[in-house]
C-alpha cells in the first residue's frame, strides 16, 4: 500500500504563504479561493497573536485537504465523485461531481472550495501545470496532493517551494521515508483527532 502524506513542521513554518500561492499557481486555482491557505491560529488578523501584549504566542497553520485515511467527505458523496485512490490520496472525479456539497459539509477542516461561479482568473488565462484538469462552474475542488506531480514521483509544489523547509512529503507506508520519520516525532499530531478522520497530513508543533 501507499499512503502519500505531507508533514508540516510548524516550528519551521514562517507563515509566508508561499505554499498557498504555489498551490494556486500549480493547480490553476481561480480567484477568490485557495486550496491551501495559511492561518494565524486562533487570531482574527493574519500575523495576529494570541494572548495579551506582551504575553503573546503565534502559530501559523497551513491548511489544506488532510487526505484522511477515514475521509468523511468520501462517505457522504452520493455519486462517488470523491474517492480515496490507490496512493492514499483523497481525489475528486470532476465529471462525477453534481455539486451537492455534501462533502463540504462533511469536511471538518473546511478544506474544500466550490466553484459557485464560472472560475475567474486575474491573469485572463489559465496558469500552472498543463496536466492539471480544468474545473468548471458547479464543481467541488480541493488539494489533490498535486496528483499530476506525485503520480510522476515529483513532490507537491507546496513542498518544493517552501522556503523554510517546513513541509515534508512522502509515503507513510514506507517506514524509512522522511515523512514517516517526522511522523514518529513525539510532537507530531493531526488536526481534530477526535473527529476520527485519521488525517495523513500531520503537524509537528
Amino acid at each position: 500500500m501507499t499512503r502519500l502524506a505531507i508533514g508540516v513542521n510548524l516550528r519551521r513554518c514562517i507563515g509566508c504563504n508561499t505554499c498557498a500561492l504555489a498551490c494556486k499557481m500549480q493547480n490553476n486555482v481561480p480567484d477568490g479561493m485557495l486550496w491551501n491557505r495559511v492561518l494565524t491560529e486562533g487570531c482574527e488578523q493574519f500575523d495576529g497573536a494570541e494572548g495579551t501584549y506582551p504575553h503573546l504566542t503565534r502559530t501559523y497553520l497551513p491548511l489544506a485537504c488532510q487526505h484522511c485515511e477515514n475521509p468523511a467527505c468520501e462517505r457522504v458523496c452520493p455519486t462517488g465523485a470523491t474517492y480515496k485512490d490507490d496512493k492514499g490520496r483523497v481525489e475528486i472525479d470532476y465529471d462525477k461531481c453534481i455539486g451537492c456539497r455534501m462533502c463540504m459539509a462533511a469536511c471538518p477542516y473546511n478544506a474544500r472550495t466550490f466553484n459557485w461561479n464560472e472560475p475567474v482568473r486575474a491573469t485572463g488565462a489559465a496558469y500552472g501545470d498543463a496536466r492539471v484538469p480544468e474545473r468548471g462552474r458547479g464543481v467541488m475542488e480541493k488539494c489533490t496532493l498535486c496528483k499530476e506531480r506525485t503520480d510522476e514521483g515529483e513532490e507537491p509544489l507546496c513542498v518544493r517551494c517552501c522556503p523554510a523547509d517546513a513541509r515534508v512529503f512522502g509515503d507513510l507506508d514506507d517506514p524509512n521515508s522522511a515523512v514517516s520519520q517526522l511522523r514518529r516525532d513525539g510532537r507530531a499530531e493531526v488536526l481534530l483527532e477526535e473527529k476520527g478522520t485519521r488525517p495523513q497530513v500531520f503537524y509537528v508543533r
Binding site: 504563504n17 508561499t18 504555489a22 496558469y127 501545470d129 498543463a130 509544489l157 517551494c161
Partner: peptide, 22 residues
Amino acid sequence: LAMIQPRPNDDHRFQNVCLKGI
C-alpha cells in the same frame, strides 16, 4: 508566463522562491 518554480540547484540553499516570485 504560466508557472514559476525554483531553478534546480545542487545547493539546496539556493533553490528558492517565495510568494512574491510566484
